[in-house]
């Protein structure tokens, strides 16, 4: 390889690099710098962080986001994995069922929010179904106990099929010979899953776990459209809190500090998950 001519290199790399620096790295840096200056102060300090962390609303938002993450990620991945195992077969019309599970993934989250917002109305079809089954109608999005679960439903309807496709592709890459080998050894279904499928799927699962966790930290449209964080702050996920701080209340300093907190948490979670999913046998193999 010869050293590239600067003009040619600039033509190929320049535009994209400029876009990424100006539109991704610069605003992230700007948020970091802004977060260090309290309003009307030219001294670097942690005042903005002290302020948001002592703010009850922000504390509750962190709590809600943590609870939401701990529920939604395992739930979606477990469902996606079960669906992938179910649909990893060659029966008639399987292609159609796969496509139907994937289709909601094409629906923008704002559209999913609007549709389910109507579906979960007090006089909507979900309550109609519950009543047919002899269950009392529920308040869903207007109940502090059910609103977060409603958001989880809205997000999972588009998410599960999406992550399922990755896991399905991962399952199909597992060599058939491995399954035959353990069958000869007399392994049962659970043992096959535990000692063949799961280890072979580790890389795909890592990718899905990390990407899904990041995506779920950023959920915003359903909250902003349907609940604005309510009722009683029960759905005030971190993105909605940042939006409320920065855009609705115009408190750019607090929004910048909250943004830095979010980005830091995202990067930390990504790192931890990669560590955790690294198996000892990866080194041996």
């Amino acid at each position: 390889m010869r050293v590239a001519k600067p003009t040619v290199l600039l033509a190929f790399l320049g535009p994209t690099l400029l876009l990424l620096i100006v539109l991704r790295i610069w605003p992230a840096t700007a948020a970091f710098v802004d977060s260090l200056y309290a309003p009307r102060s030219d001294q670097i300090s942690l005042d903005n962080y002290r302020f948001i962390f002592s703010d009850r609303v922000f504390q509750q938002s962190l709590m809600v986001s943590a609870i939401y993450s701990l529920i939604v990620n395992p739930l979606q991945i477990a469902m996606a994995l079960m669906l992938a195992l179910l649909l990893n077969t060659k029966t008639a019309m399987i292609g159609l069922w796969r496509t139907l599970v994937l289709l909601p993934a094409a629906v923008p989250l704002s559209v999913s929010a609007v549709i389910w917002g109507i579906g979960l109305r007090p006089d909507g079809p979900i309550n109609a179904l519950l009543m047919t089954m002899g269950i009392d109608p529920q308040r869903f999005l207007t109940s502090p106990d059910q609103a977060l679960w409603s958001i989880i439903l809205i997000v999972s309807w588009v998410g599960v099929g999406y992550w399922m496709t990755f896991l399905l592709a991962g399952l199909q890459e597992i060599p058939k010979s491995l399954y035959e080998a353990v069958r000869i050894d007399g392994a049962n279904r659970w043992q096959t899953f535990r000692y063949v499928t799961l280890p072979q799927l580790r890389r795909t699962l890592t990718f899905v776990l990390v990407a899904n966790t990041v995506a779920n930290f950023l959920v915003f449209a359903p909250v902003q459209i349907l609940t604005q964080g309510g009722p009683r702050g029960s759905t005030n996920l971190i993105m909605n809190e940042i939006f409320t701080l920065g855009f609705v209340q115009g408190d750019r300093s607090s929004a910048a500090a909250a943004t830095v907190v979010l980005v830091t948490v995202v990067l930390a979670v990504v790192l931890i998950q990669f560590r955790m999913m690294q198996a000892p046998e990866d080194n041996a193999a």
Binding site: R24, L218, I242, T259, V263
Partner: peptide
């Protein structure tokens, strides 16, 4: 994530 830096 892009959405995280959308506001700044």
């Amino acid at each position: 994530p892009f959405d995280a830096i959308a506001l700044p």
